[in-house]
Amino acid sequence: MFCIPYVKCLPLIALYGQLLLGLINGSFYALLSLGLAVIFGMLRVINFAHGALYMLGAFVSWWLSIAFGIPYWGALVLAPLAVGVVAVVIEKTMLHQMYRLDPLYGLLLTFGITQVIEGTFRYFYGASGQPYPPPAALSGPLNLGFMILPIYRGWVVLVSILACLGTWLLIERTRIGAYLRAATENPVLVQTFGINVPLMMTLTYAFGAALAGFAGVLAAPIYQVSPLMGTNLIIIVFAVVVAGGMGSILGAIVTGYILGLLEGLTKVFYPEASNIVIFVVMAIVLLLRPAGLFGRAA
């Protein structure tokens, strides 16, 4: 038994179960908020369409399976690429015109794009979800001794940590990442060095969107593939990004996992507060540290 004095005692297995659930939710929060942070850091666009792009990733996986018999492993590569291509079209045709304007305009545009994408999918597929089974190699449980771990969920946690780590390394430890960081500070000067910043902005948006698409593929076997799956998540993810610090890569990753775990623990000890705990944390962080936990004050 695990006890917090005067609050509650629980069997350890229930605690581990909720911690795992928190870790899985945290994995999606981290992947999605990471994409949002990458996009905001470079483009200064608050990408409200991120939830729709996540949903698109899940739907592309489902389509690939239904229409072409392409399995999960193929979808894991193809769906993020497809979402990246959609993002390139969005950026090239609409979003690039928002860069010189207040970030509010980018938010409104991407909100509109979200409505169009989700509305279209709701029209064709309704609000109910489509089933998408996990691959055979990742099905079934794994007995860890202290708890039973569904293999697919363990895979989601592992692969999301690797994706976050890879993205962090790309931005913090590579030449391309240095271009990105420099262009975030002074895009005009970076262009005078011979770097094609407009192309970099397009690719950054595509990369952030592809991360959302990747999260969508990972989510498809856990949640139903539904037009509303992004809407349900995006508000929480925005709270994570704000608490972590807008545009902070490390902040998005760490805060995503921590708040996922906190949400899981709240479900154990005070379930009534589990839906709001992330927003309460966000409000406290904004009061005490307006730039976010990992953000730099302007």
């Binding site: 240095a178 960081r181 420099a182 975030t184 500070e185 002074n186 005009v188 000067l189 262009q191 005078t192 060095f193 011979g194 770097i195 094609n196 910043v197």
Partner: peptide, 28 residues
Amino acid sequence: VPLHGIARRGIGYVPEERGIFASLTVAE
């Protein structure tokens, strides 16, 4: 020629404000 194409012709620029990037080390 687009802005990023000028440097490709061998023209370097040192701006008045120096333009050193805070998020990069000296080596970077």
